[in-house]
Simulated assay, not measured.
Amino acid sequence: MTGWTAEDMPSLTDRTVVVTGANSGLGLEGSEAFARKGATVVMACRSVERGESAAAEIRGAVPDATLDVRECDLGDLANVEAFADGLHEDYDAVDVLCNNAGVMAIPRSETADGFETQFGVNHLGHFALTGHLLDLLRAADGESRIVTQSSGAHEMGEIDFDDLQHERSYGKWDAYGQSKLANLLFAYELQRRLGNHGWDNVISVTCHPGYADTDLQFKGPREMGSTLRTAFMGIANAVFAQSAEQGALPMLYAATADDVIGGEYVGPGGLFDMRGAPEFQQSNEASRDEATAERLWAVSTDLTGVEYDFESA
């Protein structure tokens, strides 16, 4: 993988790639890279207006880009289902699903369905979306991939089944760490279930961007109304972060590289795993606890009402 860049991606002509959070940051960079390689990119965005603006930006760099901007609010399960229904109407298959969108370290709030926002958007929204699109992924010609974006912050996470929504006690970083750990537990459990049901043409892979300069770091301070914290994040990003373009590379590698197998975890291999070219890495022991993963899957099914039907699909 040494020196691997987006230019090393294979041709994606006739491939359909769905990217959540495609209007900014890693999602925007990833969408442009997929489009540059010939993919039809479904840009799943909470705001269609911002999505169309991002698509115009991509077309400025890639004039022949094939982009489909659609509303997908991961904080509203009915909206997620409507998005999936729309894809079923207009597409026969999905080749890559990038579960990329997320929120980080924000003051406590709730989704439309009453979930703590970080857990609801980062984990439950993607759990529901993936379940709704399972049959389209199965229908792909050749191997399809589900790429779930996690974070090094999973290492400070703990799945608190007694207070998943952090109603009794809320720490913004604790909640973020829990959601990122949940991403990994979900992705690994999904790979086990795909294998157990003989779905050899669909694999589940995870990744993390290291420390990338995106708008994600600013959302929390802005919602808190903290000018000082916002300024501090700007300085930290300028000094320590790699670009969003570089931060998107692990997702692009996980989605397209020919040596990727189900259950892999891809991240930047440079200083403290915060920057550099993508490489295969190991997430922490908690993320690979199968008992916790099975319990989280059951709870997620109950909370979202989304059943993964491996048999009929």
Rank of each mutant, 00 (worst) to 15 (best):
D68L: 10
V80H: 00
A65F: 12
E89W: 00
L97W: 06
T130R: 02
V69W: 05
N122H: 09
L77R: 07
F115T: 14
Y91R: 05
G51V: 04
G142N: 12
D90I: 01
C72Q: 05
L124W: 03
A82D: 07
S109C: 12
V96H: 07
D135S: 11
L97Q: 04
G75H: 00
E116P: 12
G120N: 08
R50N: 09
D68Y: 05
G86Q: 08
H88Q: 04
A101S: 13
M104I: 08
V103T: 15
E81M: 00
G60D: 08
T66Y: 04
R138F: 06
L77M: 12
L134Y: 05
C98K: 10
S53N: 12
G125W: 00
L124R: 06
A61K: 15
R59S: 15
H126C: 03
D113P: 11
A54D: 08
G114Y: 09
G125L: 02
H88E: 07
L124F: 03
D95P: 11
M104R: 02
G60K: 14
L74K: 08
D64I: 06
A139W: 06
L87C: 09
G114V: 03
A139E: 14
I106E: 08
V62G: 09
H132E: 04
N79F: 04
L87P: 06
L129Y: 01
P63R: 14
V94T: 07
T117A: 15
A112C: 14
V103L: 14
M104P: 05
T117V: 13
T111Q: 15
D90Y: 02
A93I: 01
R138G: 06
N122G: 09
G51T: 02
A78G: 13
R59K: 15
D135R: 11
L134K: 09
G51R: 04
R50D: 03
F115E: 13
G75I: 02
E116H: 10
H126Y: 02
H126Q: 11
V69P: 03
A82P: 03
D85G: 07
V69Q: 10
H88I: 01
A54E: 09
D76L: 00
V69D: 03
L129C: 02
D85S: 10
I58L: 06
A82C: 01
G51F: 03
A93F: 08
D73K: 08
G75N: 04
G142Q: 10
F83A: 03
N100L: 09
L137I: 01
A84M: 03
L137P: 01
A128S: 06
V121T: 13
A84H: 02
